[in-house]
């Protein structure tokens, strides 16, 4: 039985949480009308991305009352949305929550904070320290927020832990306009999505935003790539779009039967290799 999901390729306003909440409600309603069981929003969808000092102003705890409308709306369908989380010890994190049945059921804190080029995440945020999978109606899932996905180990760890879906909420600035190719960033992202989907036999749900922040354009182009490497659905570049696609567990099973790379994966060798290099003890369990 396949599960319908929706991707909200939207343009959040920078630092205007209330306005963004209203915007979320509209997309959630549209996703519900389209029969989706889950709607995924891009990175920092409730706050905007290039926050700078606004990060502290818009941060809230995961159980903050201002997120209640999202929790309430998740009684109708699951919602994955981004916000700035203030942890119990007052650190700021780029976070993606998954709300289901009226409750927050999972939260991922962005681990890899790009602090180079046009990015300055590390100045304003603290890193997450784990890649945990969780289960919802669509299957076992891992979240890779933007830069997280660029690190090969992230989707690898998720797939190894049993994930069949990788949600990749992003705020990817479009750049690279050389002749003879696609937008440079689009080319890289599509290569990544297809590669991970095919070789880890998972669904990659790439969720990018659109709009401008301080002159930087987010290019959209969200896509759902199936474990056989086909692009199941793709949103246009630069324009808002509600992208609808299906997650089919049968297809995951068929692809893994045909192409059992994950079954044959030797995590023990990976672990021994890394443990040895870092001088950590490693006992192989047989």
């Amino acid at each position: 039985m396949s599960i319908r999901i929706a991707v909200a390729q939207c343009a959040p306003a920078l630092g205007a949480v209330k306005r963004n909440l209203d915007m979320h409600m509209k997309w959630i309603a549209r996703a519900k009308t389209a029969g989706a069981r889950l709607v995924v929003f891009p990175e920092l969808s409730l706050t905007g991305y290039y926050l700078k000092d606004l990060a502290a102003d818009v941060a809230c705890a995961a159980d903050d009352p201002q997120l209640l409308p999202i929790a309430e709306a998740s009684r109708e369908l699951d919602i994955s949305a981004g916000f700035v989380e203030r942890s119990a010890d007052a650190k700021l994190h780029i976070a993606q929550g998954h709300w289901s049945g009226g409750k927050l059921v999972h939260i991922h804190r962005k681990v890899y904070l790009p602090t180079y080029g046009i990015f300055d995440d590390g100045r304003y945020f603290g890193p997450g320290d784990r890649f945990d999978t969780y289960r919802w109606a669509g299957g076992t899932t891992g979240v890779a927020i933007c830069e997280d996905l660029w690190h090969v180990s992230t989707p690898y760890l998720y797939a190894a832990a049993g994930a069949t879906i990788v949600l990749a909420p992003s705020a990817s600035p479009g750049r690279g306009v050389a002749e003879g190719g696609d937008l440079g960033t689009a080319e890289s992202c599509r290569l990544m999505d297809r590669f991970y989907a095919s070789y880890l036999t998972v669904y990659v749900v790439y969720v990018n935003r659109v709009g401008h922040e301080d002159g930087i354009a987010f290019w959209g182009g969200s896509e759902i790539v199936a474990p056989d490497g086909t692009v199941a659905a793709r949103a246009p570049e630069f324009d808002e779009d509600l992208l609808i696609g299906e997650i089919d567990p049968e297809l995951v099973a068929r692809e893994r039967a045909r192409n059992p790379l994950l079954r044959d994966e030797r995590e023990d060798i990976v672990l021994r290799n890394i443990a040895g290099r870092l001088g950590l003890p490693f006992d192989r369990r047989d």
């Binding site: 920078l14 630092g15 205007a16 306005r19 926050l51 922040e213």
Partner: peptide, 11 residues
């Protein structure tokens, strides 16, 4: 060290 984006709360 007062670094706010120019598109602060802009539509």
């Amino acid at each position: 060290d007062f670094l706010y984006p120019r598109d602060w709360e802009a539509d």
